[in-house]
Amino acid sequence: MSAELVLSSVIFFGLAVIIPVIMLLTAVFGPRSGGVAKNDAYESGIKHVVGMADQKFSVKFYLLAILFLIFDIEAVFMYPWAVSLRELGMFGFLEMVVFILLLLTGLIYILKKGVLNWR
């Protein structure tokens, strides 16, 4: 690791962190006026909150998260393959064809099972 790289990384990270923090400082200097309504959850003017924020929500979101996790990891497998495809040649190509076919099979299964049917 060159010193240049370290230096630029440190400065850039520092900037990236400091800029928003400085901007947040306005919270300290800004005006302050309390109020009952300000302390309530915003509900488009509905007086009493309908339902809780920590209620259960559709399991579809979890399913989606799981699917993402799996497919994304599969995509991660492809990066090294893609970069070195020229060296791998035909064999590498065939391997990935198998891999993609398997991935597609999984996708078809998911779709057929209606996992992604949002209603």
Partner: peptide, 11 residues
């Protein structure tokens, strides 16, 4: 296994 899985999805 894969074939069965696909068949299963076809119901």
């Amino acid at each position: 296994a894969i074939a069965l899985m696909l068949l299963a999805s076809m119901e």
